[in-house]
Design a protein around this nucleic acid. Sequence first.
DNA 1: TCACATTTGTACGTATGTATC
DNA 2: TGATACATACGTACAAATGTG
Lengths: 291, 291
Amino acid sequence: MRELEIPHRYRSPDTRQGIAAGGTTPRAGMRAPKILMSESSLLDRQELPRAQGGAAFSPLYQQIKALLLQSLDRGEWKPGEAIPSEHELAARYQVSQGTVRKAIDELAADNLLLRRQGKGTFVATHQEAKVRFRFLRLMPDDGKQRLSGSRILDCRRGKASAEIAALLDLKAGEGVVMLRRLLSFDGSPTILDDIWLPGALFQGLTVELLGRNRGPLYGLFEAEFGISMVRAEEKIRAVRAGQEEAALLNVSISDPLLEVERVSYTYGDRPVEVRRGLCLTEHFHYRNSLN
Amino acid sequence: MRELEIPHRYRSPDTRQGIAAGGTTPRAGMRAPKILMSESSLLDRQELPRAQGGAAFSPLYQQIKALLLQSLDRGEWKPGEAIPSEHELAARYQVSQGTVRKAIDELAADNLLLRRQGKGTFVATHQEAKVRFRFLRLMPDDGKQRLSGSRILDCRRGKASAEIAALLDLKAGEGVVMLRRLLSFDGSPTILDDIWLPGALFQGLTVELLGRNRGPLYGLFEAEFGISMVRAEEKIRAVRAGQEEAALLNVSISDPLLEVERVSYTYGDRPVEVRRGLCLTEHFHYRNSLN
DNA sequence: TCACATTTGTACGTATGTATC
DNA sequence: TGATACATACGTACAAATGTG
């Protein structure tokens, strides 16, 4: 583990120990602890700048959350696997189970973890239908999800354009993998995706590997490259079909298409994918919930 | 309040009372407690059918959440107002503060309530910029939000079409208010909205009232009609501009437009608005976050 | 089928920190 | 300075779901 400090708030409530109840149970005064991470690291701290000029403090459970995030990021627990029990984590970090619980609660709310009563807490994976659904927003108008077939049209390596480099947080000219695929539903081509990935992170990515893959692309990324897509931002527009796109999607030039620009992030808000999808919305729609 | 029953789980942990610690603090055994709503009402219960054929049980905090929802729905606390403190609610419902806290946590997570440390917990209102932002997803490509001007083009009453009636959960032919408005940013028309509302709920809604309104439409609905928009579902497509729409949005016929179909819901998942927006996405985009 | 251990879920209580007025 | 309200942290006990012997 790492070096820990003691914050000057949420100290052990040792004032209790004299007054405290029956002596059979282990009391707070016996424990050593209260930890604080020495560096801020992945902490998604609030925007509030503390009045004091000093270090950035955060509640214990946020620190635990950050530690859990680090473990996830390092691949200590793989997608689909169970993480240690709350009890075990509490012992490991020397905090109460309730504190671990609150940390996990937030990670579960962010869909990074999945709790199952009686079984344990599991690392979210794109192999599950539920998760995949969260990232595939195009739905048939009649509501019935159809089988989707993916055809890889292209996969090659090159240098990032200035625009892509900026979005992926790369230096201009760094290597990227570019791939193009066509998703069909019931055999009719519906989504044309252009995808850019940082070359360094996706070394062995080839058409052959993609061809062998059944199931979602993000599932492959998890299994083969250890990269979990955790979050994405999309920008959606209505555009006109160009010549090439029209041909691939089997529509006329200038037909309206839904353009979906996506930047996907892994743990720690690091961008790892840029995607531009062109969708035929004659019989499909992009669904979204506001709340 | 209402009649309450005692569930056969989560009974008072009265086994403690003999063993329990110092006698100065109020013990669990003193309270009367443990409630269960006699009817299911607004409960958003899980899909799990209980093994037993009997009543539908739910955790206490879910019951409290349902009671809070009822109070919100009845307008006991108005948008922008503070609800009673956790302490007070705990006393009212005869449960612990922690249980009230968990109920409020969920309502806050759903954006129905807003917690402010040191001040209280407040009913969410569309008067706030933050909330408005959640429902206005069209953004300028450069990221800088501009002033939006709303011009009401039409407002009349009529009978619901079969389609609208179905979406609003009305009987075919029931009265609706239809209105059309044009939103402009920096003076350039960008969004053309057609809106349908249940006539019965929006009695005094007129062009004059709309004309006097500054601020968001949903704010007006809250203030004048006591109807809070809490959630919405959208379906998004790329379409071709028709003649009328093209003229109003100042584009050519057949230009691509983003169509956003929205159904909005108030407390208890009751649909209270259908909206069809046509958006110009030359310099704007619909933003969305996936997680 | 039953008993048991494990793991998450619910509920309670207490003490203290932090923000606000 | 004090009162109030939400936030954090600890601890305990029991319920419910799951898997195993």
